[in-house]
């Protein structure tokens, strides 16, 4: 039993340590470690967790870690997964803050991170394609996807509003389908 908690902690510590950017940058690593390697969640569940993470308190990376840990091993699992995901930050940032104040100004760091961003960009693209295949399954879901993407890129609309609107759209679309069938 003890090992499963340790496994949860170490897995999420690895995920935290390999996240470069916001919560979205965590997605490719999550898919590999949690969905493909360990089967702790499905692609669809990841989409669900991100949607809920967008409109609940706290940063998305923590929300998603808590969700998966909690699904696996209850409340304690949720807490341990979250401790895992924050652990690398605590160590690395503390070291940098203590010894390397000019870290972000170093030329080598700048070049390395410009490179990493290109890598992250491609990995996130692949991750989105995987989720897209599971979530966009017909014309209405295609329209919801396109609208949310365009609105988020070009307008400054709160994700909370988008998530609520999409949920209502889901009820209406599926509800009318049922009614038509009857």
């Amino acid at each position: 039993m003890k090992n499963e908690y340790l496994d949860l902690f170490l897995t999420f510590a690895r995920i935290g340590g390999l996240t470069f950017g916001g919560g979205y940058a965590m997605l490719p690593i999550l898919q590999r470690e949690v969905v493909e390697k360990r089967g702790w969640a499905t692609e669809n569940e990841l989409s669900d967790y991100y949607a809920i993470g967008q409109c609940t308190p706290g940063i998305i990376a923590v929300n998603v870690a808590t969700f998966i840990g909690n699904k696996r091993k209850g409340v304690l699992g949720g807490i341990i997964a979250t401790f895992g995901v924050v652990f690398p930050s605590l160590v690395i940032i503390t070291l940098i803050a203590a010894f390397l104040q000019n870290f972000a100004d170093l030329e080598i760091v700048k070049h390395a991170f410009a490179g990493v961003r290109v890598g992250v960009c491609v990995l996130v693209f692949n991750a989105v394609v995987k989720l897209w295949k599971k979530a966009v399954i017909d014309i209405p879901t295609g329209i919801i996807f396109a609208l949310v993407l365009l609105v988020t890129v070009f307008l400054d609309v709160s994700p909370v509003i988008l998530v609520v609107a999409a949920g209502i759209a889901g009820i209406i679309v599926q509800g009318t389908r049922k009614a038509v069938k009857k």
Binding site: G21, G22, Y24, A25, L27, N44, S47, D48, Y50, A51, I52, Q54, A114, R117, V118, V120, C121, V124, F125, A127, V128, L131, W132, K134, A135, V136, T141, G142, I144, F145, A146, L147, V148, L149, T152, V153, P159, L162, V163, A165, A166, G167, I168, A169, G170, I171, V173, Q174, G175
Partner: peptide, 26 residues
């Protein structure tokens, strides 16, 4: 039904995050 609508919206928001990394990297 709610999740039927939420999933594509969630992917849309992550795709938007991808667009913003794209415009700072490639």
């Amino acid at each position: 039904n709610v999740f039927y609508g939420l999933r594509p919206a969630s992917v849309g928001m992550i795709a938007a995050a991808f667009v913003s990394v794209l415009t700072m990297s490639v």
